[in-house]
Design a protein around this nucleic acid. Structure first.
Lengths: 227, 227
DNA sequence: GTTTAGGGTTAGACCCGTCTAATTCCGGGA
DNA sequence: TCCCGGAATTAGACGGGTCTAACCCTAAAC
């Protein structure tokens, strides 16, 4: 009987925690959900009360196993919806996020199962992000590394584009940067900007640091390191 | 900027108004939505404030044109979802109502349009209820008449089964009472119970008054009176 | 070891949707 | 016409989720 809002907090904490083992701080959550810090504090009180987060006052929170399970359920809904909308309702890769956000709290278990079935139990969504399984076990770490960690001249394959801004996604899609595409890295500027060329396009793409940060790639030699 | 709850009230008023021109009374809405009368009164204050209902204190409400438009939008969502779930996600006719209720407030205009397109712009849902058009003009009255208004021996075609209880719907579906099926009326008891036999089944079905009330039928001679 | 900047928490308020208890209105029967 | 039962409204409370203003803690700089 968690509210939609509580689920949003748990999901936000999960996303912020992604990859790291760090505690998540009040202000990060506030930024993610676009609310004020006191609002977050009071919600953390409630989540702690329900044993969905572990808390150290003034030092941030971690999800408990139970909290993580709830978050994974929401993430599973979100990513299944993204996949379904893309596959069966002709949505574009760049448009699905907002719709999935609207719906993720409101589908039944039955709906979830039917959608998963219609898609053949997929394990990644259209952005290349892993879809948690029906067992809600925490999935392996995301594939690959941020593109900015590679050197000039490297040839890599896009594994995941985790940005959520439709404008950014359209920009990338227009230039052939999407999961599965091969990229040659042309330049890595000291301030984190990456320039690359997709094998399917003449025009190079420039990815400012904030964007590059969301583009994860694997090398052909190391197709999926799994952590 | 209407809340989900406000939309629920408008939809409830619309459904209760269906067919009639009567004002809808506080207690009817309370019963429909399973809240108390004072709760309804206070919500009616807000809806009146926003000019979504016309109100006469102590005498019930009517939807304004604007209120009706909002209600029609929700009803359109609901019935498109029912049709989509039945057609593309293998839901049974009797199961779709609850899922559509969950989702109807949370789909975008874009989603609505894509679903309508995927279905070929349908005009009735799986229960035979008319789906309001994208223009949100008030649709014609429902087809046909309640089955209890016919006499013994009449042969009629089921146009609509507007009940929402999955148990009732399963009962009817099991005995072949669904839109499009031909029925021979065997008996109409004075207390409103109707017994009939579908052309596809040996067993007659008995419909208690509360169920019969939701089963609307047309005669072959008068296939769709449209009001 | 002190100071201090900046994020975190507490205090207190507000709106929404709901409830129960008390009051008021409406309409039918005498 | 008056009364009365049933329905509607008003009054007041509450929990959820949010805010602003004020205060407090932490950690880094000195």
């Amino acid at each position: 009987m968690l509210s939609d809002v509580m689920e949003d907090y748990l999901k936000a904490i999960y996303q912020l925690q992604r990859g790291t083992d760090e505690r998540i701080r009040t202000s990060e959550i506030a930024g993610e959900l676009d609310v004020t810090s006191p609002t977050v504090t009071s919600m953390l009180d409630k989540l702690e009360e329900r044993e969905l987060v572990d808390r150290e006052k003034y030092r941030g929170v971690t999800l408990t196993d139970e909290g993580e399970t709830v978050a994974l359920e929401i993430v599973r809904h979100h990513r299944l919806l993204e996949a379904y909308l893309t596959e069966h309702l002709d949505y574009d890769w760049s448009e699905v996020h907002a719709e999935a956000d609207r719906l993720e709290h409101h589908i039944s278990e039955d709906f979830e199962a039917r959608v998963a079935d219609a898609l053949g139990e997929p394990t990644v969504d259209p952005h290349g992000s892993p879809i948690p399984g029906a067992d809600l076990e925490p999935p392996e770490r995301p594939a690959g590394k941020a593109i900015s960690e590679f050197e000039e001249g490297a040839v890599v394959t896009v594994a995941e584009v985790a940005d959520r801004d439709p404008e950014v996604l359209s920009y990338l899609a227009d230039r052939g940067v999407e999961p599965g595409v091969e990229l040659e890295i042309l330049e890595v500027a000291p301030f984190g900007m990456v320039t690359a060329r997709s094998s399917e396009s003449e025009e190079p793409v420039s990815l400012p640091e904030t964007v590059a940060h969301h583009v994860r790639v694997v090398t052909p030699a190391e197709p999926d390191p799994q952590g």
